[in-house]
Structure formats: structure tokens, C-alpha cells
Amino acid sequence: MALTGVLRPGHVAIRVLEMAPALKHYKDILGLTEMGRDASDRVYLKAWDEHDHHSVVLREADEAGMDYMGWKVDSPATLKKLAADIERSGLATDTQWIPAGEHLHTGERFRFTVPTGHVMELYAEKDYVGNNCGTDGPNVNPDPWPDGLKGISPSRFDHCLLYGDDLDGTVKLFTEVLGFSLAEKVMTKADPDFMIGAFLTCSNKAHDVAFIRQPVKGKFHHASFELGSWEKVLHASDILSRTKTRIDIGPTRHGITRGETVYFFDPSGNRNEVFSGGYIHYPDKPAITWYDETLGPAIFYHDRELNEAFLSVFT
């Protein structure tokens, strides 16, 4: 099976309370690169190994949280097809086309709201800027990483974890319309058909997006960025401590996805994660099941206990 259709999470748009401290956090501490600002003062950033123009968009607002998450699809034809499929499914609301150029260096986007209240977008085109590793032109005889990395410097924006109420509807939309697989799920022991957590992938990753059922609409738990190793997660935690960035939990391991992780907060209270590891997912891999009674080790494998903050702290 080749990777087609929805390729990956391409961007996340995050609301911040004040731009200056947010930029200090996302650029100097997390180590993303600023790629541009638009007429409405949104700031566009990317991680070093991403080839497209941007993956994080910050907007100053009165509320923290996530505006939307964008997904890159393999072609303009796929974009049109999936947009029609979404309309036909009746599972999404507030569908609309956002014209090309509304995001810097980005083609038209199809925007829709999923049953958990999160705004999602599909797009096919974003300008290529490369990862700056080539020694003899872009992608020719590349070095393994570029010069001038700053802070934690993850390789890419990887996934989000989101909270919302109609989990079943959102899972149906992602699996049946957008072609995602359910890599892992959390069910209740009392009612084994009742899902409380869904870890969905459109690729070979253990997850590209995850949802947890909570009685809210459109809430944001974290945006996560990839690091190459457990040692880098430890190093990231050192950077967070020395910059007095508020660490939520970790470094530790998730039972779900097996990822090694540290959670921390941006200056507006939005949670970030950097992680490494996990496994390779193939579409024929059976879904992993967890039950609510083992949610502790599922989320934090070493503590084996969910902290209060995991469920009540979100933006």
C-alpha cells in the first residue's frame, strides 16, 4: 500500500494571548524557525526537517487554544474528491473553501468542523522551501541536519491530541471518509463498545491525531513535535527546566503509542509535547485496545496513574 489520500498533519493554528512571549517560546525554546508574517499579524513557523513553508501558525487572540489543524493531501484532485465526500457524509458542519493565499504560500483549503467541534482543513499545495541540508543545492548530498539549530529543535510537527464530546462521530469521519486507521482505542470496561479515546493514523505513524471524549467542544490538549531519540527528550527537558518553562509531566513514556515524552506549556497555557519513538503502523495491524481501568499506564506508563492535569488542563 502506498501512502495516498491524506498524507500528514500539515499545520496547526494556535491562539496565543501575547505574541512576543509566544515567539520567544516557539522560536528560542522549542526552536522552530520563523518563516513569515501576514497582513493580519499571524506568524508562520516551521520545524527544521519540514520541506513545506510552514507547520505552525500563531495568532494573537483573547483566548488560548487551537483555531484549526490542516492536513496535506496528495493532489488537487484528491482535495476536490475528499471535500465532496465530506459534504456528502453529513458528518461535518460549517464547510467552506478558503481561497489560495489566505495562508502565506498555501493553495486553497477546504475547511470543515468535525463532530467533536474541532475545525479541520485539507489542502494540496504549499510552497516548497526545503530543509536546508543540501550541501550542493537542495537535497543534493545532504548533511543529516542543518546548521544553526536553536533550542529543542524538533524535526517536525507531528500530531495533536484534542478533547470533545461526539467522539464516535469524529472517528467515523476520520476512518470512513478520510481513510484513517484506528491504531489504538480506549474503551470502558463496563460497556466495551463505548469509546473514550481514539488514536488515528493516516500514515505509518502510531498516530497523526488523537481524540479523547470529554464533555466539551473543540478543545485542545496538545500539539506534538518529533525528536529523534529518548536522549533528545531528556535534553529537551533540560532546556525546559533551565528556561523555567512550565513542565506538565515527564520525561516519561506513554503506554499508548509507546512514545517517550515530555509535556510542557507555552506562555498562553497551550500544552506542547516533544516525543520520540513509537512504532510503525501498517493498515493491516490490529487495533490496540486499552480499557478505562488501565488509563493510568496507558497515558503515563511509569507513574501508572493519570494526573488530575491530564483531563482538566486544556485550552
Binding site: 512550565r246 497555557g269 488542563v313
Partner: peptide, 12 residues
């Protein structure tokens, strides 16, 4: 006082 994000975002 419960401690959440410490940054004015989560409300706990």
C-alpha cells in the same frame, strides 16, 4: 490552589 498551565490558559 490546583496548578495547571500556570500561564492563564486553562482556568483550573
Amino acid at each position: 490552589i490546583p496548578i495547571g498551565c500556570c500561564n492563564g490558559g486553562c482556568g483550573v
